[in-house]
Design a protein around this nucleic acid. Structure first.
Length: 108
DNA sequence: ACACTGACCACTG
DNA sequence: CCAGTGGCCAGTG
């Protein structure tokens, strides 16, 4: 298996995202100490397929846009999962994003 | 060992 | 406003 630290950390943080809340790749990256390692978070999320516990649908980009939706089973899967938690999505974008944004730096 | 890629972000022109 | 570039870390060819 891998010895990658960030991958494991990213997954652990993602698992801590409360239901009905969302966070951004950059926020997780910053929490882990990466200034601009948001890409790694995206890569980690891609690897998160092995971890069904990781709610990848709660991780969006800094604009609240569902950039990762294309990587789900279906392009609409991510939005449906979010709406099932009470998160409204309009035009691939989380509504009230700022309000439900979960920042690990502050809340964790 | 080298080059390229990736579910991103911020800056510059 | 849109396009391009650098930066971060790990994986793959």
């Amino acid at each position: 298996m891998s010895k990658s630290n960030y991958l494991n950390d990213v997954h652990q943080v993602a698992e801590l995202i409360p239901k009905g809340r969302v966070t951004s790749y950059g926020a997780i990256a910053e929490y882990l100490g990466m200034k601009s390692g948001a890409r790694l978070v995206g890569w980690a999320m891609n690897a998160a397929h092995s971890n069904p516990k990781v709610p990848a649908h709660r991780v969006v980009n800094r604009n609240g846009l569902l950039t990762g939706k294309a990587h789900f089973a279906t392009p609409t899967r991510m939005q449906e999962l979010l709406e099932a938690e009470g998160i409204k999505v309009l035009d691939e974008q989380v509504v009230n994003f700022q309000n439900i944004f979960w920042n690990p730096l502050i809340e964790l």
